[in-house]
């Protein structure tokens, strides 16, 4: 190690980088845990039905499954366009 290195600000250590990355990926994977395998397909089909009637963006449909100990709630959130003309 040269004398210059000694005064240089140290690089962010790799352990904290590892921790940050792990926190993000683990939280993401936990949120998906326990969701039924049919969910993506169902989301697709719901979207197809809605777009038969309304011209909507794929991003405007949100399907969410919340699980409690007792009940599971399937939440469907569709934002319809403001413009009347877009309604078929």
């Amino acid at each position: 190690m040269s004398l210059l290195d000694y005064f240089r600000t140290p690089k962010k250590n790799t352990a904290s980088l590892a921790k940050e990355r792990l926190q993000i990926i683990v939280a993401h994977e936990r949120s998906k845990r326990g969701t039924p395998s049919y969910l993506p397909q169902m989301q697709k089909e719901i979207l197809a039905v809605i777009s038969k009637y309304v011209d909507i963006d794929k991003e405007q449909v949100k399907v969410n499954l919340d699980k409690n100990d007792q009940v599971s709630v399937l939440e469907l959130n569709v934002t319809l366009p403001d413009n009347e003309s877009q309604i078929r």
Partner: peptide, 16 residues
């Protein structure tokens, strides 16, 4: 290696 910041420490892994 934990001391030099290149390995996850016990507390970090417990937290995750």
């Amino acid at each position: 290696r934990v001391a030099s910041g290149d390995m996850l420490c016990i507390e970090d892994i417990e937290e995750i």
